[in-house]
Amino acid sequence: MPSITRRPSESSGRRAQVEADVFAATRRLLDQGMSFTELGVQQIAAEAQVARSTFYAHFEDKADLLMRLAVGTMGESFDLTSAWAPDDGFDALAQTFVRVVAVFREHSSVLRAIAEVSTYDGAVREFWGEQLSRFVGSTVAGIDAERDAGRTPGSVDAEISGRLIVVAGQHAIVDHIMRRDPAEDASFAWELAATWWYGVYRRP
C-alpha cells in the first residue's frame, strides 16, 4: 500500500519543476528578442513542454508569470544592496553596484518585459512600484541612521533623497544595460556609487 505521507512532497516537487520549466522557457523566448506582449501562453507552454492547462494550473495568467519571474531578479538585487552599509565605504559601494549591474544584465530580457507590460497593465505597474519600495524603505532607513549619527547633514530629506536615488538609479541601470557595452559596467557602477556617496550621504 503506497504511503500517503509522501504525496504532498511529491506534488510539491512536481509543481516546483513545472514552474521552473515555464520560467526557463519564458526566459529563452525573451532572450531571443521576442516581445512579451506578443508571446502567447500556448507558445510558452510548448517551449516548456507542458500542456496549456498545466500552465493555468500554476499561473493565473501571463502577468502573474512575469511578476514571479521578476521577483527573483529584485530579490538578488535587494540582497546585494542591503548587505552594504556606509561603514563599508565608497569602494565597497561601487563593487556592490558592479554586482547589481551584473544581475540586471543576466535578467535584462525580463526587465525589458516588465518595462513593456507596465505601460499598459496596472497590476504589473503596481507590482514593480512595490518592489522598488523595498529598496526605498531600506535606503531611507540607512540615510536616517547616518543623519542621526551626525555623519550625514541634518538638512538631508531622507524620504525624498532615498526615493530619488533608488528610482532614478534603477532607471539608469536599465538604460545602461540596454544601451551600453558590458565593458563600461565598472565605470557606470563607480559613477552611480559616487552619486550616492558624495550626493545623498554628503561624504567629503
Score class of each variant (00 low, 15 high):
residue 96 T to Y: 03
residue 204 P to M: 07
residue 3 S to G: 07
residue 138 S to G: 11
residue 101 V to H: 07
residue 171 H to D: 14
residue 178 M to R: 05
residue 56 Y to S: 11
residue 94 A to H: 10
residue 120 Y to E: 13
residue 35 S to V: 01
residue 178 M to L: 11
residue 199 G to P: 02
residue 73 T to C: 14
residue 46 A to W: 03
residue 91 D to P: 00
residue 126 E to Y: 00
residue 175 D to M: 03
residue 69 L to K: 06
residue 72 G to Y: 05
residue 54 T to W: 15
residue 156 V to W: 00
residue 23 F to G: 10
residue 130 E to Q: 12
residue 67 M to K: 14
residue 169 G to I: 05
residue 94 A to G: 03
residue 87 D to V: 08
residue 34 M to E: 13
residue 129 G to Y: 01
residue 200 V to C: 04
residue 80 L to I: 15
residue 89 G to P: 04
residue 97 F to T: 04
residue 13 G to M: 05
residue 108 S to W: 01
residue 182 P to K: 04
residue 88 D to K: 13
residue 167 V to R: 14
residue 104 F to V: 00
residue 192 L to P: 03
residue 103 V to M: 12
residue 57 A to P: 01
residue 14 R to E: 04
residue 49 Q to E: 13
residue 133 S to M: 07
residue 181 D to L: 02
residue 114 I to V: 15
residue 148 D to S: 08
residue 28 R to D: 14
residue 125 R to E: 15
residue 112 R to G: 14
residue 182 P to R: 04
residue 36 F to E: 10
residue 81 T to R: 15
residue 168 A to G: 15
residue 178 M to S: 02
residue 139 T to G: 12
residue 61 D to K: 02
residue 124 V to Y: 01
residue 198 Y to G: 13
residue 167 V to H: 13
residue 114 I to W: 02
residue 105 R to M: 11
residue 100 V to P: 10
residue 28 R to Q: 12
residue 198 Y to I: 02
residue 18 V to E: 05
residue 105 R to D: 07
residue 75 G to F: 09
residue 109 S to H: 15
residue 127 F to T: 02
residue 158 A to P: 11
residue 58 H to N: 14
residue 88 D to L: 01
residue 42 Q to K: 13
residue 191 E to Y: 01
residue 147 R to A: 07
residue 127 F to E: 08
residue 127 F to Q: 11
residue 61 D to Q: 01
residue 54 T to Q: 14
residue 2 P to Q: 07
residue 49 Q to H: 13
residue 24 A to N: 06
residue 83 A to E: 13
residue 51 A to W: 02
residue 145 A to W: 03
residue 77 S to D: 05
residue 30 L to T: 02
residue 167 V to T: 12
residue 6 R to P: 00
residue 200 V to S: 06
residue 62 K to V: 12
residue 110 V to N: 08
residue 16 A to D: 11
residue 71 V to C: 03
residue 179 R to P: 00
